[in-house]
């Protein structure tokens, strides 16, 4: 195929636009980083999860809806520039735009173009439309940087309406037994997704860390289902009749034990595997993820028609080996992403 094109040519040709450095993904031409894990001058941010955005950067660029998250998490006095999806800006000749990643509200793929060379950094993404996050759009490019959180063929999600039907069954079973249904979900992303999926199925009570994020979104004009913030005054009987959503950090905590016979459920892609469900001390596990599953990753990557695919956090080695075998040139890169579910703030 590439007869007069050596591997090194290839590297020089494509690597000009981004480099993988010890601080993060770097665009030398534009002198900015994408999701750096060490402080830099200019951080282009894919989304608000704590493994993709750190404090201490001099300036941030992110999607409009990510701003309130950064302010909420990193502090009010940040130098943040925002963009809507698809609006192009130019930084020292590099054309930059944000493309919906479908991962969580405000999540974006970063599209870079320089002298006709296109590179897309996906951040985290999912392909299925969840009803609340702008849907993922594949972008044709030469180089694609993809996550691989669920990059094994055992991870194939059921359509979300089926998962939500199971969650609703579980909730109604709890109601029959006078148990309080407590769902643990990451406060950015999964929580809003559950709110949407369970809208109309009962009053939804959310922990304050989720309520705070929701308020930010409401301010920015996002249409969210109605929820009730849990306060010390909230009566346990109300919670028992409703649906409670709390961040994972609270799942083993004392607060849950004060509820009227709580039944807990974890909603995460890891719940696809029995061993994952067993490791949780929850009463139920539902495989609901904001990351692409195996078919999702493959379809997204094929749709980019990229000549080279870099694989960040997840099953990097396995996934890139497989891509190479099916004829997509690929390489794993070491990053510090991938602990989004571990580093939930303890509030």
């Amino acid at each position: 195929m590439r007869q007069n094109f050596t591997y090194l040519d290839f590297v020089y040709y494509h690597m000009a636009l981004i480099k993988f450095t010890s601080k993060g993904i770097y665009c030398a031409q534009g002198d900015f980083y994408i999701d750096p894990w060490k402080p830099v001058n200019y951080a282009v941010t894919t989304h608000g999860h704590s493994d993709h955005v750190k404090s201490g950067n001099k300036a941030y660029l992110c999607h409009e809806l990510t701003k309130s998250i950064l302010n909420h998490r990193l502090g009010p006095d940040l130098n943040i520039q925002t963009l809507p999806y698809h609006k192009q800006i130019t930084i020292n000749g590099v054309k930059l735009s944000l493309v919906p990643a479908g991962h969580v509200i405000g999540s974006a793929q970063i599209r870079l173009e320089y002298k006709g060379e296109i590179c897309v950094i996906s951040g985290d993404y999912k392909v299925e439309y969840d009803g609340i996050t702008t849907q993922f759009e594949p972008v044709k490019c030469h180089t694609f940087v993809s996550e691989s959180t669920f990059g094994l063929p055992i991870y194939k999600w059921q359509p979300q309406q089926e998962v939500f039907a199971q969650i609703k069954d579980w909730i109604s079973g709890n109601r029959d037994k006078n148990k309080t249904s407590v769902l643990t979900a990451y406060s950015l992303g999964k929580a809003q997704r559950l709110m949407k999926g369970l809208e109309g199925y009962g009053d939804i009570y959310v922990h304050s860390s989720i309520a705070n994020l929701n308020e930010g979104f409401l301010h920015s004009g996002v249409n969210l289902p109605e929820t009730i913030r849990i306060t010390p005054e909230t009566r346990k009987e109300e919670l028992q009749k409703g649906i409670v959503i709390v961040p994972p950090a609270l799942s083993d905590g004392r607060w849950i034990k004060t509820l009227t016979s709580p039944a807990t459920a974890v909603c995460s892609g890891w719940m696809q595997v029995r061993a994952g469900r067993r490791w949780q001390s929850a009463d139920a596990g539902f495989a609901l993820s904001d990351h692409a599953d195996w078919p999702g990753l493959l379809s997204a990557i094929k749709a980019t028609e990229a000549e080279r695919v870099y694989i960040t956090h997840g099953f990097t080695a396995t996934f890139s080996k497989y891509l190479n075998e099916i004829g997509i040139e690929s390489e794993e890169v070491k990053t510090q992403y991938g602990n989004e579910e571990e580093e939930e703030e303890k509030s």
Binding site: L152, P153, I154, Y155, K156, Q272, V273, R274, A275, F315, T318, K321, Y322, E325
Partner: peptide
């Protein structure tokens, strides 16, 4: 499942149970 055998093995290592790996894959 039309995947290479090594990928099946990797998946199996991850799941830890052959019956379950097959069911999922």
């Amino acid at each position: 499942s039309e995947i290479p055998e090594w990928l099946f093995t990797e998946s199996y290592h991850n799941v830890g149970d052959l019956s379950e790996t097959i069911a999922l894959i």
